[in-house]
Write a protein that binds this DNA or RNA. Structure first.
Lengths: 206, 206
DNA sequence: AGAAAAATTATATGGTCGTATAATATCTCT
DNA sequence: AGAGATATTATACGACCATATAATTTTTCT
C-alpha cells in the first residue's frame, strides 16, 4: 500500500486536542449524527485510523472532547468573574451576566451539551466525567453564593442546596432559550437570575 | 414474493400510536441509537415498511412520538394538580411534588427528552412541535403562580417571567438529578422548589 | 360471494458506520 | 547518515441504516 500523501507528524497530545476540537465542530454541525469517526477525521484533515490509534475507540475521543469543553466553559465564566470587582455581589452578578453572554448562551453550545447528556445517560465513561465536572461547577457556585450571603448578612440554611438550585435555574434557562429563542430575551434571563438572587437575599433559603 | 406471515390489520391511528410507543421504548433503551426504523419496527412486532407507509419518513414518526409524550406528561402532572385541594397554594405545591414524582423524575424519561432536544435543535419539524408544547406548559405554570400570588396577596411584576423561571428551575433540577442521582435527593429537589416559592412570596418578583 | 382498497410483508439497493490490519512516511536519536 | 520507533495512511470487512418497490394478505363494501 502507498501512504503517498505527505503528512505532518505531531505530538500525541496535540493530535488528541485537534481531534477533540474537530469532534466538537462536527457535533455543532450535525448533532448526534456528527459523532462519526469518518466525519471527525475528515474535519481534522486526517484519516480515520488516526482516531483508533490515539483513542482506541471513538467514545473515548468523545469523552475527551467533553472534558475539554466543560473545562473551557467553566474557565471562561470564572475568568470573567475574576475580572469583576472583588465585591461578592459584583462577582455573583458577573457570573449571571456572563452565563448569558453570547459565548455560552448559544444554540451551538447547547447542541454539543445535549449530545453529551445523551451519552452520559448511557455510558459509564461519560457519566464519570460528568460527575466530576458537575461537582466542580456546583462548588464554585456555592462559594460565590456563600460569599455574597456573608457580605449581605443573609443566613442560608443549606448553601449546597442553594447552589444546586441556582445552577439548575441557569441551566434550565439556557436550555429553554436555546430550544426556543422566541420564548424570552437574554436580558429577561438575566433578570430572572437576578430575581433569584433577590429571593435569596430576602430569605428564601434562610 | 410471499407475504406469508399472517398479520392483523389495524386502523391507521392505532398503528401510528403503537409505532410511536415502540419508538419511545427504543429510545429509552438505546438513546439516540434507538431511533432506527428497523429497531422500532421490530419492537412493535411489525415490518419496517409499515413505518414508511404510515409516516413517510422516520422523522415524522419521531415527531409524533414527541407530541404523544409531551401531552402525556403535562396531562399527568395537571391531573394530579386537579386532584389537589382547590386552594392555590396546595395546587402549586402539588405541581412541585408531582413534578418530582417517580413517574416523571426518572432517568428513562429524561433520556427520551434529551433525544428530542437534540432533534429540536436540528429539525424545523421538531422545533415547531416544541414551541407549541413549551408555550402550553409555561401558560399552565403562569396560571398556577398567578392564582397563588393573588391568594397570598403578593404582587408579581411580570408573571410570565416568573413562570419561565420556575419552569427552568424544575427542568434544570430534573436534568441535574437524572444525569447524576447522587447529586441530591428528590426530597431536596422538592425543598429547592418550595424555597423558590418562598422567594416569590417574599417579593423576589415584585 | 366477489371485487376494490388499503394495510402489511418481503426484498433489494446504495450508503455509512466502527474498527482491524498492513504498508509507509516522518521523526528522533545516536 | 542510518536505524529504530511510531505516527499516519490506505484498505478491507461485516453490520446496520433509510428507503423504494412489488407482491400479498386482510378488510370492507356491495
Amino acid at each position: 500500500m502507498k501512504a503517498r500523501a505527505g503528512f505532518r507528524r505531531e505530538a500525541p497530545e496535540d493530535r488528541r486536542r485537534q481531534l477533540a476540537e474537530a469532534a466538537l465542530r462536527c457535533i455543532v454541525r450535525h448533532g448526534n449524527a456528527g459523532v462519526s469517526a469518518r466525519q471527525i477525521a475528515m474535519e481534522a484533515g486526517v484519516t480515520q485510523g488516526l482516531i483508533t490509534h490515539h483513542f482506541g475507540e471513538i467514545n473515548e475521543l468523545v469523552a475527551h472532547a467533553f472534558d475539554l469543553m466543560a473545562n473551557g466553559m467553566l474557565g471562561t465564566v470564572m475568568n470573567a468573574v475574576d475580572h469583576a470587582p472583588a465585591d461578592p455581589k459584583a462577582r455573583l452578578e458577573a457570573f449571571v451576566e456572563n452565563s448569558f453572554s453570547p459565548a455560552l448562551f448559544d444554540r451551538d453550545v447547547l447542541g454539543v451539551w445535549v449530545v453529551f447528556w445523551g451519552l452520559i445517560l448511557h455510558s459509564p465513561r461519560m457519566s464519570a466525567s460528568q460527575k466530576g465536572e458537575y461537582t466542580a461547577y456546583v462548588i464554585t457556585v456555592e462559594k460565590l453564593i456563600a460569599d455574597y450571603a456573608a457580605a449581605e448578612g443573609v443566613t442560608i440554611e443549606n448553601p449546597r442546596l442553594a447552589a444546586i438550585g441556582f445552577t439548575a435555574l441557569m441551566d434550565g434557562l439556557w436550555l429553554a432559550w436555546c430550544l426556543n429563542p422566541e420564548a424570552f430575551q437574554p436580558e429577561e434571563g438575566i433578570q430572572i437570575g437576578k430575581n433569584w438572587i433577590k429571593g435569596l437575599k430576602l430569605g428564601a433559603f434562610a
